[in-house]
Simulated assay, not measured.
Amino acid sequence: MDISILIPISLFLAIFGIVYLYLSTRNKERLALIEKGADASIFGKNSNSFQKIILLNLALLLMGIGIGVFIALLLSIYTTFDKGAIYPAMIFLMAGVSLFVGYKMTENLDK
């Protein structure tokens, strides 16, 4: 048997296990809250805004990485900077800037 087939199988099993544990724990937690008398409508309120925040930050992060690659390309063509150092530097810098912008935008969403 080829060992290389075990890598995708184990990856699938790990992802399945994480999703299963998350969903089963969330279900048990919600059932316990309902048994104690909490209203069931509290579970649907925050999920929509949480998804918006995650999508906003992910979109800004990916745009920041793209802009970082583009700026690094321009700097490597038109300057004498080291090409091996400018790409990671610009990618991390622009990703950090985009996450900071995302943080500020989520603060405005809460207001």
Results as ranks from 00 to 15, higher is better:
F16H: 07
G17A: 15
G17Y: 07
G17K: 04
G17N: 08
G17R: 03
I18H: 07
I18W: 07
V19K: 05
V19Q: 01
V19M: 06
Y20T: 11
Y20K: 03
L21H: 07
L21K: 09
L21T: 08
Y22F: 14
L23M: 12
S24C: 07
S24V: 14
S24L: 08
S24F: 15
T25I: 08
T25F: 12
T25R: 14
R26P: 00
R26G: 15
N27R: 14
N27W: 05
N27I: 10
N27H: 10
N27A: 13
N27Y: 09
K28L: 13
K28Y: 06
K28T: 06
K28C: 01
E29H: 07
E29N: 07
R30N: 11
R30P: 00
L31R: 07
L31P: 00
L31A: 08
L31W: 05
L31D: 14
A32E: 04
L33G: 01
L33D: 04
L33M: 11
I34A: 00
I34L: 07
I34R: 01
E35A: 14
E35I: 04
E35C: 02
E35N: 07
K36C: 00
K36D: 06
K36I: 03
K36A: 10
G37I: 04
G37E: 02
D39H: 05
D39W: 00
A40D: 11
A40G: 06
A40H: 12
A40V: 09
S41I: 06
S41N: 09
S41H: 05
S41W: 02
I42F: 04
I42G: 00
F43Q: 00
F43H: 02
F43N: 01
F43P: 03
G44R: 03
G44A: 08
G44W: 02
K45A: 11
K45R: 08
K45S: 12
N46I: 08
N46Y: 04
S47C: 02
N48L: 08
N48C: 05
N48R: 13
S49I: 12
S49A: 06
S49Q: 03
S49L: 06
F50H: 01
F50P: 00
F50K: 08
Q51D: 09
Q51E: 12
Q51R: 14
Q51K: 13
K52L: 13
K52C: 03
K52W: 04
I53R: 11
I53V: 13
I53N: 10
I53E: 10
I53C: 07
I54C: 08
I54V: 15
I54K: 13
I54R: 11
I54D: 10
I54M: 14
